[in-house]
Measured scan of single mutants.
Amino acid sequence: MRVFPVYAPKLIVKHARIFLTGVIWVKDLGRLEFEKGRFLLPRKSLPKVKQAILELNELIEAQN
């Protein structure tokens, strides 16, 4: 598990694309899981977490 002390979308996306499957922890967002290079949306999450995951997945799609 990698810990990101700040929310840096480009760096987080780079990590997810390299490792494809895993878990990261982002300060103020908490634990985020990714599989096959995409972030998974938890069943229950705060609106800011949901927005961050959608933003990260959009960045991943834009890079493909």
Rank of each mutant, 00 (worst) to 15 (best):
M1K: 14
M1N: 15
R2F: 15
V3W: 14
F4Y: 03
P5Q: 14
P5N: 12
V6T: 08
V6R: 06
V6K: 07
Y7K: 00
Y7S: 00
Y7W: 12
A8N: 07
A8F: 12
A8T: 13
K10M: 13
K10D: 11
L11S: 10
I12R: 04
I12C: 01
V13Q: 04
V13C: 06
H15W: 07
H15N: 01
A16H: 00
A16Y: 02
R17P: 01
R17L: 13
R17E: 12
R17K: 06
I18N: 12
I18Y: 15
F19W: 15
F19L: 11
L20S: 09
L20V: 10
L20Y: 12
T21E: 11
G22I: 04
G22W: 01
G22L: 03
V23S: 08
V23W: 06
V23N: 05
I24W: 01
I24E: 00
I24L: 07
W25G: 04
W25V: 05
W25E: 15
V26L: 04
V26M: 01
V26D: 00
D28R: 14
D28T: 13
G30N: 02
G30E: 02
G30W: 02
R31G: 02
R31P: 02
R31L: 05
L32A: 00
L32D: 03
L32V: 06
E33M: 13
E33G: 11
E33Q: 14
E35R: 14
G37P: 01
G37F: 05
G37S: 07
G37D: 03
R38C: 12
R38F: 12
R38H: 08
F39S: 09
L40G: 04
L40W: 05
L40Y: 06
L40T: 08
P42M: 05
R43S: 07
K44S: 05
S45W: 12
L46Q: 13
L46E: 07
L46H: 08
P47E: 04
P47N: 11
V49H: 06
K50V: 08
K50D: 06
K50S: 07
Q51T: 10
A52G: 02
A52I: 07
I53W: 04
I53Q: 01
L54E: 07
L54A: 11
L56I: 04
L56M: 08
N57A: 02
N57S: 02
N57D: 01
N57Q: 03
E58P: 00
E58N: 11
E58S: 11
L59K: 05
L59M: 12
L59Q: 06
L59A: 09
I60Y: 06
I60S: 04
E61M: 10
E61A: 13
A62H: 10
A62S: 10
Q63K: 09
Q63H: 11
